[in-house]
C-alpha cells in the first residue's frame, strides 16, 4: 500500500513537472517567435504603441476630476 502510494506520488509529481515545463517552453517559444519576427528590431518603438494620431502622446486622458477640483479651489 505504502509502495503503491509512493509510486502514485512520483507519477503525479512528474505530470505536474511536465506541464510546468510546458508552460516555460511556451514562454521560450513566444520569445523565439518574437525574435525571428522582428519584434525586438526597434525596441524603443514599442513604447509609443498605445498612442496614435487620434490619441497622441503628450495629451493626458481620463482627467474627469479636474474640472471639479478646479471649481472647488476657486
Amino acid at each position: 500500500m505504502l509502495l503503491e502510494t509512493s509510486i502514485n506520488v512520483s507519477y503525479g509529481i512528474w505530470i505536474l513537472l511536465l506541464f510546468s515545463l510546458l508552460i516555460i517552453l511556451s514562454g521560450i517559444g513566444l520569445f523565439i517567435w518574437a525574435y525571428f519576427s522582428g519584434q525586438f528590431d526597434d525596441i524603443n518603438k514599442g513604447a509609443q504603441l498605445p498612442f496614435n494620431e487620434e490619441e497622441p502622446a503628450g495629451e493626458p486622458t481620463d482627467q474627469i476630476f479636474k474640472d471639479n477640483d478646479s471649481k472647488q479651489k476657486n
Binding site: 525596441i43 524603443n44 514599442g46 513604447a47 509609443q48 498605445p50 498612442f51 490619441e55 502622446a57 503628450g58 495629451e59 493626458p60 486622458t61 481620463d62 482627467q63
Partner: peptide, 14 residues
C-alpha cells in the same frame, strides 16, 4: 501611459 499621456519609461524592461 495612456492616462498620463507619456510612454512607458522603458519598453525593454517591460
Amino acid at each position: 501611459p495612456k492616462v498620463i499621456g507619456r510612454p512607458i519609461y522603458s519598453y525593454g524592461l517591460s
